[in-house]
């Protein structure tokens, strides 16, 4: 079952002559975890905006092609409807929290939709529990660390109960531990709730081992779309603004000298393979 379908999508922001996206074809199945990478300004954020309807409802420009989310055509569906199917977490945690306490922020979208109070209460409690931040409910967003703020932002999206969650460079402002915690949490939620995840990120080494697919967007086009390890097998990712994990480079180096099963991105797997080969030798 395809939850996102993008067909022949091109988009040029008004006031610009160069298209930001050119003839994109892209599909995501339910429950998939897709990592989107590529150089800054390549079109990653623009693709996200096309999927959650900010294009064409919020940003003006010339749009061609079709985008369906959960069967809904984005160009004809208002953003507040789309938001209940595909949620979005932005890069800067400060700029997506509006309220004076965490609980109100998680309730924000639901209140805007005019849901009955009892239902908001249930959904807010559920979202806070899923993120494990019940203890922050009465805190002000100003007092929270970046990692905590990003969890609140994610909780406020979960409260809308979307099928798909997009995260646009969610760890940019976080330190390594908070980034790792957030990514692990997203992965756990995906398995628990059967969510579909689209994550735009530069921290490939952290996310690639968990992702089903890697899509590399380069100069407005999809350069690669497939299993993460195959990308590093075929391309010098660095030339396309994708940081190459050290394990990928090491794998390629190993393959030059030994019988080696291709690019490995997961450190546990790497260790297993080394031990397997070492064991054979004994």
């Amino acid at each position: 079952m395809k939850v996102i379908e993008v067909r022949g999508l091109s988009f040029t922001y008004s006031g610009q002559d160069k298209p930001s996206l050119r003839d994109i074809n892209f599909e995501v199945g339910e429950g998939e975890f897709v990592l989107i990478s590529g150089p800054s300004g390549g079109g990653k954020s623009t693709l996200c905006r096309c999927i959650n309807g900010l294009i064409p409802h919020f940003y003006e420009g010339e749009l061609r092609g079709e985008v369906y989310v959960d069967g809904l055509p984005t160009s004809k569906t208002p953003t507040h409807i789309l938001s209940q199917h595909v949620g979005m977490v932005f890069q800067n945690p400060q700029n997506q929290l509006f309220s004076l306490n965490v609980e109100s922020d998680v309730a924000f979208a639901l209140e805007n939709l005019g849901l009955p109070r009892e239902e908001i209460r249930d959904r807010v409690d559920e979202a806070l529990a899923l993120m494990g931040i019940e203890d922050l409910a009465d805190r002000s967003p100003v007092e929270l660390s970046g990692g905590q703020q990003q969890k609140v932002a994610l909780a406020s999206i979960l409260a809308l109960r979307p099928k798909v969650i997009m995260l646009d460079e969610p760890t940019s402002f976080l330190d390594p531990m908070s980034a790792m915690n957030l990514v692990e949490l997203v992965d756990r939620l995906r398995r628990k709730l059967g969510l579909t995840i689209l994550m735009v990120e530069h921290r490939i080494d952290l996310i690639a081992p968990r992702a089903d697919r890697l899509a590399v967007i380069y100069e407005g086009q999809i350069l690669y779309d497939g299993p993460p390890r195959d990308f590093f097998e075929k391309y010098d990712g660095h030339l396309y603004g994708v940081s190459v994990p050290k394990l990928a480079r090491l794998s390629k180096e190993m393959a030059r000298h030994l019988e080696w099963p291709g690019v490995i991105l997961d450190i546990d797997e790497f260790e297993r393979v080394v031990r397997l080969i070492a064991g054979h030798r004994l």
Binding site: P176, M177, A278
Partner: peptide, 18 residues
């Protein structure tokens, strides 16, 4: 310091017995 080691350092640490 709430940091985690670079990938290769971590790998080397895990394979200390080799």
């Amino acid at each position: 310091c709430s940091l985690h080691p670079p990938q290769l350092a971590l790998l080397m640490a895990r394979l200390r017995d080799l």
